[in-house]
Amino acid sequence: MPFIEVARVTKSYTAANGAIRPVLRGVSLSVQRGEFVCIVGAMGSGKSTLLSILAGLTRPDAGRVVIDGEPVDRVRADAAFVFQNYSLLPWLTAQENVRLAIEAAAPTLARQEQAARARRALEQVGLGTAVNRRPSQLSGGMRQRVAIARAFATDPELLFLDEPFGALDALTRETLQQDLVRLCSSTERPVTAVMITNSVEEAILLADWIVPMLPGPPATLGAPIRIQLPRPRSVAQLAHDEEASEVRAHVIATLTATLCVRARGSSMASPQDAIAARRLAAEESR
């Protein structure tokens, strides 16, 4: 039985003027325990909506999500989330931000022990010297490190990542990607991760499976692509590796082929639809 089972999930949003905008239709997905899955698609294609349904932040209109045998109707205790915009609380220091997650997960733990764990989690991502700094005193990369430390601090079994490296420069992105891989493999229990990205390169670097999201509205999922490249992988190595190039070509071909079909199929779509889709995308990114 798969660890995460998504079956025929459909979701629409009602716009302010009462119009109903479909976002997802008939989305199904299975993820085995310990797998790293990347959902790849264009901006505003409904990826974030799907992820927040998986995480229990949003309810689907139809269909169901089952994780570890339990239907998802709220945020699971063993799940952690990393957002693109860091989502750190600006009035707390790095350590306090991480400690807040630990406190929520283990309220009976002594404050000092919570703080010590938070410090260790920050040391794990190379922020041992920045524990007392506030988010505004940290660079984008460092903030995302804090967010990653916060996610791993509670020893999660499930990780949801919403374009975590989307706002970072290329160099920072690569070191953080490697940190993420290291953290995922260093936990005691296997971590199952679902990550959203619009970068095929990033998906190939990290994923066991790549699931293309076909833009809508409503968006649907394409057939998953298995990535069997040996680990550890690096950007430099993937750039030259023949097998990697084949995988990349295959993923891009799948994505663009389905995009082309979509584009032809939706040639009747009105400009209003396009505007609505863009508005929806903007709402989603908020």
Partner: peptide
């Protein structure tokens, strides 16, 4: 919305959400 999401994702209690998020914000 980010801060509400933090509260939901970290499963903060109502009291903690109030003291650590709503009041400072």
């Amino acid at each position: 919305q980010d801060y509400w999401n933090v509260a939901k994702v970290l499963r903060l209690s109502k009291t903690t959400t109030f003291l650590k998020i709503i009041v400072p914000a």
